[in-house]
Simulated scan of single mutants.
Amino acid sequence: MFDFSRLKWLPALAVAALLAACAGPAKQQVDYTALRAARPHTIVVLPPLNETSDVNATNGMLSQMTMPLAEAGYYVLPVAEVAETFKQNGLTTAADIQDVSPAKLRKIFGADAALYTKVTQYGSVYQVVDANTFVTASAKLVGLANGDVLWEGKGSASGKELGNYGVNGGLITSLVQAAVKQVAHTLSDESWAVAGLTSRKLLSAGQPNGLLYGPRSPKFGTD
């Protein structure tokens, strides 16, 4: 005879099955084999490719990437000196610079690896009752000895993560606040600060799928 008391478990089982289906496959982890084998000490950061409509995206992102790499334990060649070297060799655009072969970069700078970056979102977005600033970028670390990709990652941040937002009141108030925010973003160039947060998410060591700690870090070899 069927035990009807078991029916009480069916809703819970159905919910569990639905959650499992929605969860999907686990996020693939980064393969650190090549990075551990290469053990880069010195990194040259190349100007990011700009795939946005904001002309400030390349310099805005470039100015923020040295710090998280240095804090991770790598020696980063001074960005200004690298830019001047490229300029003296007739290379002034990010696209031309990123087309230089790894072997040539190694010969010029003596670095172990180069960081190639692409900015796909940069700047403020005006919405009906709000305004926000977004910066999204992807990067890959390439070994200059053989051109192998040692690591790849992606980072994104918004102005709301800086803690400067909060829309309250009715519709008219919200519209006014959104307009004020848009002007404030333009005057203060909030994208630069958001680019700093994106750089930390993208390049800081010790986070899931992030870079490993470099040789100058006391945590080197522990991750």
Results as ranks from 00 to 15, higher is better:
A111P: 08
K140D: 03
T117F: 00
S101C: 09
N132Y: 08
A113T: 02
V100E: 06
K140M: 07
T133L: 02
A111I: 07
A95G: 09
S138C: 02
A131C: 02
K107Q: 15
Y116M: 13
D96Q: 14
A103Q: 15
I108G: 07
T117L: 02
K118Y: 00
G110L: 05
Q127R: 10
F134V: 15
D130R: 06
G110M: 04
A111H: 01
L105Q: 06
D112N: 09
D96W: 01
S124K: 03
A131R: 01
V135T: 04
Q127F: 04
L141D: 01
Y122K: 11
S101Y: 05
N132G: 14
A114W: 00
K107V: 11
F109C: 07
A114T: 02
A114H: 06
V129E: 14
K118S: 07
G110P: 03
R106C: 08
A103H: 10
I97L: 05
K118G: 04
R106W: 06
Q98I: 05
A95C: 11
V129G: 15
Q121A: 11
N132A: 13
Y116R: 11
F109H: 08
D99E: 14
K107E: 13
K107A: 15
N132C: 08
D99H: 14
V129W: 04
I108W: 11
K140H: 04
F109P: 10
Q127C: 06
T136C: 10
A114D: 00
G110E: 00
S101L: 11
Q121E: 15
A131M: 02
A111G: 10
A131K: 03
P102G: 09
A131F: 04
N132P: 09
A114Y: 01
Q98D: 12
T136P: 06
A94Y: 01
A113N: 04
A131L: 03
G110R: 06
F134T: 15
Q98A: 09
K107L: 14
Y116V: 15
G110V: 07
G110C: 05
D112Q: 03
P102T: 10
A103L: 14
K104H: 08
A103P: 10
Q98Y: 01
A137K: 01
Q121S: 12
